[in-house]
Design a protein around this nucleic acid. Structure first.
Lengths: 233, 233
DNA sequence: AACTGGCATTGAAAATTTTCAATCTGAAAA
DNA sequence: TTTTCAGATTGAAAATTTTCAATGCCAGTT
């Protein structure tokens, strides 16, 4: 895990104003005066694939904005196996529950190379008092997280294995800015869809044989959205 | 559908202060001055079982506090079948998405006799400016909804049919104040668990034969939580 | 170039779930 | 009380999924 923290440069969040994805992040609507109120460091952190950003049960005084890459939120069942309940990508907020004082409800684990901004809870809380825009932004995030969760249930946990895999691929494709997208391991697919690794593999292999899915280099892939849609949605 | 709206009596939300479940609802921490700021009617509405409170796609300027009864939130798939993504009970807020200006993402349908308070969005918005406590209350609701959704995925959409039914019964039991709880139709169980009506029925019948589940009068039932837990959790 | 380790894929049998058609049951209506 | 009917249950065959064991396939090292 690489941690890039140049505290002086960041003190007061001076560079948030120039953030390349500012329009996507929580602080999109803050003005100069708001930024001047930030007196705690906002760290820019990079993670390698498979790193854990935080752990279920942790009491973390931070939320994280995903700047790039894919993050999975997974919960462990008492019997030990894991279910992935959501994926976060650019602009999403991880650790929302920390804002209302709860401990983390998931393990947050990076799927590929990930950059995040780590924002202290105190920054949010103090800004909250004075900037109504932040409230709206936060509400949007909650709302987005919630509708993501509902979607997960209706689209990814419903129907037979092939349908689920197809909808997952379509979802990954939609959320990609690129024309290709990150293809998870079969194990992760299974954990997202509530099916076994092998079932995920069988469906994936079948799609590849049908030429509806073309794996490219390095965990990336392309799909024929029209054909997949026609078959499974 | 019965609508009880005595607008004079309610104008200004005078009675919210004396609400029997005030400690559970959004307005728990408001003070006299806050209540005086409410200038739109908050209606008290009762629904019979199977009523639709609002419909997916509706643009509703309201949120609803559930005062009693059970409400299901369901989403339709393009192919027409429905998946229940969440249950709401006493103290929960329905239609949260309306607050951030989205149209309703679900059908909200009552499962038994339900009482709700219908709160205009404008009330929330205007209070929001002046009462930080409302913010916290709202954040708690978002958080609760979200963790409910995650739970739904890990507990109710994972494992085989019997496990899922068992966990649903345990969940219904936990959320009941009573020592018995509302037992949904097998069709609704199926829609919650992502299994067929018949599979839900087979599991339910099996549990009854094992004496782990005892249906009482009128859609209500009792379970042996210890035994169900031991078998399935 | 050969080796290695981690995934992915495949196949076949076992287990589970769905499908579909028949009953069964209990509560409300006549 | 009898009728009626929607929902619940059941059974058996078909379909799907899991399980488990065996290869296959790279990408990165020796």
């Amino acid at each position: 895990m690489k941690t890039i923290q140049i505290e002086n440069a960041w003190r007061g969040a001076k560079r948030c104003k120039n953030c390349a994805i500012r329009h996507l992040v929580l602080f999109a609507d803050l003005d100069q005066a708001d930024f001047d109120r930030i007196h705690h460091p906002i760290d820019d952190i990079e993670f390698e694939p498979g790193s854990r950003i935080y752990r279920q049960g942790d009491d973390m005084p931070f939320v994280y904005t995903v700047r790039s890459g894919l993050v999975k939120l997974e919960q462990s069942r008492p019997n030990g196996d894991k279910r992935i309940v959501r994926l976060l990508s650019q602009g999403d907020l991880a650790g929302l529950e920390n804002l209302s004082g709860q401990v983390a409800e998931h393990d947050a684990i990076t799927m590929d190379h990930v950059k995040v901004c780590r924002i202290p809870r105190s920054v949010i809380n103090s800004l909250q008092r004075d900037t109504p825009n932040l409230h709206n932004a936060l509400m949007q995030r909650w709302q987005k997280a919630l509708s993501g969760a509902d979607n997960w249930i209706t689209r990814l946990s419903t129907g037979n294995a092939k349908e689920r895999v197809a909808r997952l691929l379509l979802l990954l494709d939609e959320n990609s800015t690129d024309d290709c997208f990150f293809l998870p391991t079969r194990e992760d697919m299974g954990a997202m869809l509530g099916i076994t690794t092998e079932s995920a593999s069988k469906a994936t292999a079948e799609f590849r044989r049908q030429q509806w899915l073309k794996p490219l280099s390095q965990n990336r892939a392309w799909i024929d959205t029209t054909k997949l849609h026609r078959q499974f949605d």
